[in-house]
Simulated scan of single mutants.
Amino acid sequence: MPEKTRISPLQLGMMMYLATTPTAILTAPTITYIFAKQDLWISPIWAFSGLIAVYVALRLHNMYPGLNISQASERIVTRLLGKIIGIMFSFFYLYLNGIIVREYGEFVVGAFLLNTPLIVVSGSMVLVCAITVRGGVEIVGRFSELLLPVFIAFFLLIIVPIIPDLRFSNMLPIMGEGIRPSIEGAFVLQTWFAELITVSFFLPYVADQRKAKTSISITFLIIILTLVVSNLSTLLLLGDLTGSFTYPFLILARYIDLAEFLTHLESLYMAIWVLGAFVKICVFFYVAVLVTSQWMNLSDYRPLVFPLGFLLVLLSMWVAPNFQELTHAIATSVTLSVLTMFVIVPWLLFCMAWVRNRLLSWR
Results as ranks from 00 to 15, higher is better:
Ser233Tyr: 10
Arg254Ile: 01
Leu235Trp: 09
Thr219Cys: 14
Phe220Ala: 00
Val229Gly: 03
Ser233Ala: 14
Leu238Gln: 10
Leu238Ala: 07
Leu238Gly: 06
Leu235Met: 09
Ile224Trp: 04
Gly239Lys: 11
Phe245Asp: 10
Leu237Pro: 07
Ala253Arg: 12
Arg254Asn: 04
Leu236Phe: 13
Asp257Ala: 14
Ser233Ile: 02
Leu252Cys: 08
Thr219Tyr: 11
Leu221Lys: 06
Ser244Leu: 12
Ser233Arg: 08
Ala253Val: 08
Phe249Trp: 11
Phe249Pro: 12
Leu227Glu: 12
Gly243Phe: 07
Phe220Asn: 00
Ser233Gly: 08
Gly239Ser: 12
Leu225Trp: 06
Thr242Lys: 01
Ile256Tyr: 11
Phe220Tyr: 10
Leu250Lys: 06
Gly239Val: 04
Leu237Met: 13
Leu221Ser: 03
Leu236Val: 05
Thr234Lys: 14
Ile256Val: 09
Leu235Asp: 03
Phe249Tyr: 10
Leu241Val: 01
Thr246Leu: 04
Leu225Ile: 07
Thr219Lys: 13
Leu258Ala: 11
Tyr247Gln: 13
Leu237Thr: 01
Leu221Gly: 03
Leu227Cys: 13
Phe249Ile: 05
Ile224Thr: 00
Thr234Ser: 10
Gly239Ile: 02
Leu238Val: 01
Leu225Glu: 08
Ser244Cys: 04
Arg254Asp: 02
Gly239Met: 10
Thr226Gly: 04
Leu225Pro: 06
Gly239Gln: 12
Tyr255Trp: 15
Thr234Leu: 14
Val228Met: 12
Ile251Ser: 04
Asp240Tyr: 11
Gly243Pro: 09
Ile251Met: 11
Leu232Arg: 00
Phe249Arg: 05
Thr219Gly: 09
